[in-house]
Design a protein around this nucleic acid. Sequence first.
DNA 1: GTGAAAGCGCTAACAC
DNA 2: GTGTTAGCGCTTTCAC
Lengths: 360, 360
Amino acid sequence: MGYFTFRHPIKTYPWEVFAMSATLKDIARETNLSVTTVSLVLNKKPCRVSDATRELILKTAEEMNYYPNQLAVGLVKQQSNTIGLIIPDISNHFYSNLALGIDAEMNNHNKNIILLNTDFDAEKLVRGINVLKSRGVDAIILTAASLSPKNLSLYSDLLSNVRVPVVTVDHYYPELHCSAVQLNNRKGAYIAVKHLINYGHTDIACITGPRHSTVTLERLEGYRLAMKEAGLSLPEKYMFCGNYRQEGGARAAEEILRSTKATAIFAFNDVMALGACQTLKEHAVSIPDDMSIVGFDNIDFSGMLAVPLTTVNQPAYEIGQEAARQALLEIEHPDIEKRTITFEPHLIVRSSTKPRASKS
Amino acid sequence: MGYFTFRHPIKTYPWEVFAMSATLKDIARETNLSVTTVSLVLNKKPCRVSDATRELILKTAEEMNYYPNQLAVGLVKQQSNTIGLIIPDISNHFYSNLALGIDAEMNNHNKNIILLNTDFDAEKLVRGINVLKSRGVDAIILTAASLSPKNLSLYSDLLSNVRVPVVTVDHYYPELHCSAVQLNNRKGAYIAVKHLINYGHTDIACITGPRHSTVTLERLEGYRLAMKEAGLSLPEKYMFCGNYRQEGGARAAEEILRSTKATAIFAFNDVMALGACQTLKEHAVSIPDDMSIVGFDNIDFSGMLAVPLTTVNQPAYEIGQEAARQALLEIEHPDIEKRTITFEPHLIVRSSTKPRASKS
DNA sequence: GTGAAAGCGCTAACAC
DNA sequence: GTGTTAGCGCTTTCAC
């Protein structure tokens, strides 16, 4: 097991007497007033209640440590003050920073987050949307789903039916008719590859994300554009399909070593770049001497690696904040037009890339 | 701004007609049955309903894409199938992995997580507990709070009144009368320091967490024990108060360089160790030649740093799972005895520590 | 100034 | 086999 347990002495707790939380009714009984009046006062509704009564209610509520039951409030107001956050992997630094940004913003508006981790599983995603809907969330923030064209319509139907604002982060499908917040992925990939080209590399492999993710598609476009502009060929066998996870990067790097003569790798995110670095290390391929590598995301640790990683910066926290703001805006104004908010990337050059060695 | 926005063309959506989600009542009306019957069938309650009726209900529910309103269910069942997770910083790898483990386990039991990020702020923590209570969570998992003795009683009262199981992670106060899951921090610190001592170090500084955190206290005990056992002195000025954050580690390292002749540092977590590493680098102090450093947590990246970090392993995901299981258990059996579940640490020796250089 | 009553969507005890 | 009824805790309209 790897752990042991220690049983506490059996005990009864005096406070188990106060099993129930105070309700409006309790306060009404205590003060000899009606539930209505108590509700009115505690919600600071404009109404003609005598100061004495008001004081009494406030005092009693305080004493009884009254907190309104949000399930009941949500039921009647049809607004739960929660928002749903669907994320593929909360342990990924990009997403956890995104979540932090969202939380910070929502906190200012007294909304709480219901967190759903999909593990990159499309089925969990679909179920998750229904779960959130049934929980009456006021909005959904949806990150990085990878949808096949077939799934897309199902998905689109689903989102159409949630009746609450949906903001997609990091994957924009026009079919979805909802607001989106994302990085200019095309440009991000373009500047990453351009950097490698400027360093004299011509055989540049890439490790992509899942095939149907729009993020992947957009980054692929940027890669293609940069290669094409430089008059470089784009052999299919230089493109490797990863999964935005470490082991995917590691596996792709194996392939790259085995089947190409690439001198540079562009990994579509830092985590895969990391996986690739480990493979290269195992094969005693030096970075950047034998292989240059550039990542994407600029997660916290990419600058502190054995070989600090050159990467494209993506401001996760700010993206989260912005997504939260847009969700809040659409909750407030349901008929406001949808927007696409795009952040601009920039390249952070560190030590994992260097000019191509001339043949020796 | 750093980003631009693009406005979508204004559009009306045909599906806005189906503004409402289907309710039991809708299905009852549609099938000419009573709400009760529909509820009974959809909840798979043992009851004598004709197969024809059952089929009809199931089919209709399917067609109308019925999902029960969980606010209503929660209100009447006094059980919301949500659990509250209070975490100081979700962007910290230890906590995000913890959250992942909790989510995985809760997912298997159809419970969702309401995530509250406290930013290490005691006030947010207190507010958070009340918020969760008012949201009717079935249990609360509470991580790493740092309570002054004064706060402790307030806090204890608060928790007593939530009426739902509380499982504390990574901070055990007997006064709280709730189950706890944690690492054997005392032992973890002990083996870390022992390792440094075995390497011949005698001037060992430590960077602690906040003063009142039990994690800090326990690790401090382990540190003291190892030092004492080895007959080493324990000058106060070798103990530096950090905050479990990177900048805290960096600041403490400055102090260590300025005011001690330490040859080794034991940082109470990896993130602070990282901060310290950066300071040392800025001061051109070589790790491990001039300074050995050992961390705590074994977060993902600690092995991939420029100088791979020697650290104490803490299985965040498993700790999360176990906390979730205990919470689930107590939801199921409210009167079950509370437990303390302790995981055993082990040291992972990498390159940031080495035997002390003999004076040259 | 304050209260009665209806209803949000659901469950469950009890009729018939 | 199926329906009636009450009620979870709250908001809100309307009456007094």
